[in-house]
Design a protein around this nucleic acid. Structure first.
Lengths: 214, 214, 214, 214
DNA sequence: TATGAATGAGACTTCATTCAT
DNA sequence: AATGAATGAAGTCTCATTCAT
């Protein structure tokens, strides 16, 4: 109780204000997308006037980039990819996929917003989009590393292919969930995906050139 | 007063104007998304004044729904799903997946715009979104029918699951292509996906309960 | 009385609206300068909403450029420079200067606004400024032509010099009037200026190299 | 707690901060005018936060008035008008005009900004404008004194007239230079002006009523 | 002697839409 | 079958200024 947080006219606290703005922006942007996120809406939701938002962020684009960055950081922290195990059993791959699925569904702000941004092709790319692609690349690199430990003999191109397919499946299933809502049970779907990945890895490990084009 | 003040061609051809508007709207919406598509932009792109757009369409929402509908129709026509063959060989499933991939990449307007709309959660759902979900359901039903012919013994839930997974993969791969551009070769990816689907179907046909949760 | 102008909801009349906007903008800009002229102020003064102003003009810059152009045209029309007379008597030059003085004081909008714009050095030049410099050049050319008829033997550089000096005097005296208000009587000042110009022309006609640097 | 968190130099030197602010404000105001000079721009240019500017100056108006005052002082110091000589030869008047021209071109901040302010007619006159008119009056008085020594017999009204004309010429030529840039050589122009002033003074000394209105 | 943070007002501009012709 | 003109609402962002520390 050394600092009563009930003070009337809030004493200036930049850190806390910034957080409140980011929270509000994440909430709005996750729902309405880039264009649909208006500063006025964020302002209303966080209780600070619009002009205060511009004290903390250069502009709307900058704000949304920050939203994506923070949301990704939270997600990446929640997801501790076990990178030391090298046993590509189906159980293990399934567990891995399940972990990813769960964390994605828990904090999907950056992913949903990011996918929306990804699908657009504006004349000048928003830095929020750039930020999404950047963090997505980070995640991709980590996943590729894990897959490499699971199929050490596979060449880089093959790993790349499976990595891309793994991510694509996750993206697609997230969308399926978005559309289907409660009628879609993600668990068996991610299991299906895990099995597909496992089999692909197994073929890779066996040197099966199944992924090559004839 | 013989109504001859110099207008040459295009003596008020409604059909043609409507088409020009739809073309322009499709182009803009495919690039900028729902919010990013302004009537002014469409007007500029099609050469007709904004008020003329409102003569042909009730409002922006209506216009975009029409865009999606038309784009889907074009796509559906291009894609003649062979629904009579019942041989679930890998080659056949692969060919099928390849066909879908190709047509999606050729006319992806409705899909890209639709996915953007899908990812948003507005208070009041745009009818463009509703339209997308509707045509998507049509496509889904057709795909489910095909899969059923390939695995006649599978139960409805299993077919549903694989159908959802099939669509999810397509969505995800489209996004991967969107992000990766030329550095992503969709062919082997769709082959991977086809193989995954084939294997799943095979397991289904064999009564393998692999997709059930333990 | 074929068209009662008392109609309630004004029937759309672009020409008239445009004029009203220009009138209002000229009034405001002449008083407040470029930055000081807000669209809201113009809107209030002309009775049309701000968005209507943007129907008629691309943006504020475009509007102010139009203000300058029109104001100049009005001025140029009011000032019929007698270009056929070639008698450089003092009376004639004085009359000429007086005419310029009078018309400048009658419609000084473009000049006052233009001079303000002239004195600024923005990173990107407003097109209103460019417009001012352009019409000013037009005026300058006409004046140079008149001076040439008055001193046909003078070379181009000399005419240029006197032209510049003539304009500078007019600018300066307008400013003096602006500052001094009623306490400044422009008539004798322009007479002084006219005399200076006459003497300079006379020296030029006589081949006196007085304007050359030693 | 020995107050030692690393600040090195500049231990809060008020005088120096004030100077930096004035420098920045002079630079900005000379370029953008009164309205165009924003506190944020000045802050950025001088490296001090906006709130610090308000510690040194009451408000923007106060700041710009200070800019004008200081700029004028610098100019006045640079210009040592020789007031003791009473020989109205052309050479002397020319030299005098040249001196004024040179100093004006060297430090024109106050003049350019002042002229911009002069041309505006706001509802409430900025004190910066008042300051400009005040220092301008000071300069005017000094010039009138010099002219009086050159034409001791002239009456006050005549001296006033010539003084006004002298200043108007200087203003106008500054504008000409502003517009013409390198293509305008001020030297012969100021010589022309000097000659005009000399002749006017000579006529005054001779009692020539040339400046009177018929 | 400063300054980080905040803020209401207002800047310019675009929005989707309507209406009279 | 169309369109020129208009319009209120809302958009992003900057403004000058204040205040607690």
């Amino acid at each position: 109780m050394t600092e009563s947080h009930g003070e009337r006219k809030r004493r200036a606290n930049g850190e806390e204000s910034r957080r409140r703005i980011l929270d509000a922006a994440a909430e709005v942007a996750g729902v309405r997308g880039y264009d649909g996120t208006s500063i006025a809406l964020v302002s209303e939701k966080c209780g600070l006037p619009a002009s205060s938002i511009y004290w903390h962020f250069k502009n709307k684009d900058d704000l949304l980039a920050a939203v994506i960055e923070r949301s990704f950081d939270i997600w990446a922290e929640a997801l501790t990819l076990p990178g030391d195990d090298t046993d590509p059993t189906r159980e293990r791959v399934t567990a891995l996929a399940g972990q990813v699925a769960k964390t994605l569904l828990d904090s999907p702000d950056f992913l949903r917003l990011g996918l929306m941004l990804t699908l657009e092709r504006r004349p000048e790319e928003p830095s929020a989009r750039r930020m999404f692609l950047q963090v997505r690349d980070t995640a991709r690199a980590r996943l590729a590393a894990v897959l490499t430990t699971l199929a050490p003999d596979a060449d880089r191109d093959a790993i790349d292919l499976v990595t891309t397919y793994a991510i694509a499946g996750a993206d697609g299933l997230l969308i399926a969930k978005e559309i289907g809502g409660d009628s879609v049970d993600l668990r068996p779907l991610f299991e299906l995906h895990a099995r597909a990945l496992h089999d692909a890895l197994a073929r890779l490990a066996a040197g099966d050139p199944a992924t090559e084009t004839p």
